[in-house]
Protein backbone atom coordinates (compact mmCIF):
# COMPACT_ATOMS: atom_id res chain seq x y z
CA UNK A 1 0.00 0.00 0.00
CA UNK A 2 1.16 3.48 -0.81
CA UNK A 3 1.98 5.77 2.06
CA UNK A 4 2.50 9.51 1.91
CA UNK A 5 3.82 11.61 4.73
CA UNK A 6 5.21 15.02 5.49
CA UNK A 7 8.33 15.06 7.62
CA UNK A 8 8.98 18.41 9.28
CA UNK A 9 12.63 19.21 9.52
CA UNK A 10 14.65 22.18 10.80
CA UNK A 11 13.69 25.66 9.64
CA UNK A 12 10.12 24.54 8.97
CA UNK A 13 11.16 23.23 5.55
CA UNK A 14 9.59 19.91 4.89
CA UNK A 15 10.52 16.67 3.36
CA UNK A 16 7.79 14.76 1.63
CA UNK A 17 7.89 11.05 1.29
CA UNK A 18 5.79 8.72 -0.83
CA UNK A 19 6.54 5.04 -0.62
CA UNK A 20 5.25 1.55 -1.00
CA UNK A 21 6.98 -1.81 -0.74
CA UNK A 22 8.70 -1.29 -4.12
CA UNK A 23 9.78 2.32 -4.23
CA UNK A 24 10.50 5.48 -2.23
CA UNK A 25 10.14 9.05 -3.44
CA UNK A 26 11.67 11.77 -1.27
CA UNK A 27 11.33 15.49 -1.82
CA UNK A 28 13.34 18.05 0.11
CA UNK A 29 11.75 21.43 -0.44
CA UNK A 30 14.71 23.48 0.75
CA UNK A 31 17.11 21.94 -1.75
CA UNK A 32 14.63 21.32 -4.60
CA UNK A 33 15.89 17.75 -4.67
CA UNK A 34 13.79 14.71 -5.52
CA UNK A 35 15.09 11.19 -5.39
CA UNK A 36 13.29 8.06 -6.48
CA UNK A 37 14.58 4.64 -5.57
CA UNK A 38 13.43 1.10 -6.18
CA UNK A 39 11.17 -0.15 -8.90
CA UNK A 40 8.20 1.75 -10.35
CA UNK A 41 5.63 -0.40 -12.02
CA UNK A 42 2.42 1.55 -11.42
CA UNK A 43 -0.54 1.10 -13.69
CA UNK A 44 -1.21 4.05 -15.96
CA UNK A 45 -0.90 7.80 -15.45
CA UNK A 46 -3.70 7.75 -12.85
CA UNK A 47 -1.54 5.80 -10.44
CA UNK A 48 1.45 7.99 -11.26
CA UNK A 49 -0.53 11.19 -10.57
CA UNK A 50 0.65 11.67 -6.92
CA UNK A 51 4.29 11.40 -8.04
CA UNK A 52 3.73 13.73 -10.97
CA UNK A 53 2.11 16.21 -8.54
CA UNK A 54 5.28 16.21 -6.43
CA UNK A 55 7.46 16.78 -9.48
CA UNK A 56 5.26 19.61 -10.81
CA UNK A 57 4.96 21.16 -7.33
CA UNK A 58 8.74 21.11 -6.93
CA UNK A 59 9.13 22.69 -10.37
CA UNK A 60 6.71 25.48 -9.46
CA UNK A 61 8.41 26.12 -6.10
CA UNK A 62 11.97 26.40 -7.30
CA UNK A 63 14.05 27.62 -10.22
CA UNK A 64 16.54 24.81 -10.01
CA UNK A 65 15.61 21.21 -9.55
CA UNK A 66 17.61 18.05 -9.17
CA UNK A 67 16.08 14.63 -9.82
CA UNK A 68 18.11 11.63 -8.74
CA UNK A 69 17.08 8.44 -10.54
CA UNK A 70 20.39 6.61 -10.10
CA UNK A 71 18.79 4.07 -7.78
CA UNK A 72 15.57 3.66 -9.76
CA UNK A 73 16.09 0.11 -11.00
CA UNK A 74 13.01 -0.14 -13.10
CA UNK A 75 10.49 2.23 -14.65
CA UNK A 76 7.67 0.95 -16.83
CA UNK A 77 6.39 2.69 -19.95
CA UNK A 78 3.67 4.57 -18.02
CA UNK A 79 6.39 5.90 -15.74
CA UNK A 80 8.36 7.08 -18.74
CA UNK A 81 5.19 8.72 -20.05
CA UNK A 82 4.85 10.51 -16.68
CA UNK A 83 8.40 11.85 -16.92
CA UNK A 84 7.74 12.90 -20.53
CA UNK A 85 4.66 14.80 -19.41
CA UNK A 86 6.64 16.46 -16.63
CA UNK A 87 9.48 17.44 -18.97
CA UNK A 88 7.01 18.95 -21.47
CA UNK A 89 5.62 21.13 -18.65
CA UNK A 90 9.08 21.97 -17.31
CA UNK A 91 10.50 23.13 -20.63
CA UNK A 92 7.85 25.85 -20.88
CA UNK A 93 8.98 27.45 -17.60
CA UNK A 94 11.43 30.28 -18.14
CA UNK A 95 14.85 30.32 -16.47
CA UNK A 96 14.35 26.89 -15.09
CA UNK A 97 17.23 24.52 -14.73
CA UNK A 98 16.65 20.82 -14.36
CA UNK A 99 19.25 18.19 -13.70
CA UNK A 100 18.69 14.46 -13.97
CA UNK A 101 21.07 12.02 -12.43
CA UNK A 102 20.95 8.46 -13.74
CA UNK A 103 22.92 5.27 -13.76
CA UNK A 104 24.44 3.78 -16.89
CA UNK A 105 24.08 0.35 -15.27
CA UNK A 106 20.30 0.42 -15.50
CA UNK A 107 18.96 -0.62 -18.93
CA UNK A 108 15.85 1.51 -19.19
CA UNK A 109 17.65 4.75 -18.36
CA UNK A 110 20.03 5.19 -21.28
CA UNK A 111 17.26 5.14 -23.85
CA UNK A 112 14.52 6.93 -21.89
CA UNK A 113 16.66 9.69 -20.44
CA UNK A 114 17.97 10.38 -23.93
CA UNK A 115 14.39 10.81 -25.13
CA UNK A 116 13.75 13.20 -22.24
CA UNK A 117 16.75 15.20 -23.26
CA UNK A 118 15.37 15.37 -26.81
CA UNK A 119 12.14 16.78 -25.37
CA UNK A 120 14.05 19.35 -23.32
CA UNK A 121 17.49 20.09 -24.76
CA UNK A 122 18.43 22.27 -21.74
CA UNK A 123 18.06 19.25 -19.48
CA UNK A 124 21.34 18.45 -17.77
CA UNK A 125 21.94 14.71 -17.52
CA UNK A 126 24.66 13.14 -15.47
CA UNK A 127 25.41 9.45 -15.26
CA UNK A 128 27.54 7.71 -12.78
Amino acid sequence: MRKSCLLLSQGMKYTMKIEDENYVLEYEENTGRISIQGSLRLNGLDEYAPLLDVLVNCMQQSDAMFVDLSALEFLNSSGIAMFSKFIIQARSKENFSLELNGSSQIPWQSKSIKNLQRLFPALVVTFH
Binding site: N43, G44, L45, S77, S78, I80, A81
Partner: peptide
Protein backbone atom coordinates in the same frame (compact mmCIF):
# COMPACT_ATOMS: atom_id res chain seq x y z
CA UNK B 1 5.14 -0.94 -31.52
CA UNK B 2 4.25 -0.69 -27.85
CA UNK B 3 1.72 1.78 -26.46
CA UNK B 4 2.42 2.90 -22.89
CA UNK B 5 0.26 1.45 -20.15
CA UNK B 6 -2.54 -1.06 -20.29
CA UNK B 7 -6.26 -1.16 -20.71
CA UNK B 8 -8.87 0.08 -23.12
CA UNK B 9 -7.18 3.42 -23.82
Amino acid sequence: GDVTGHGLE
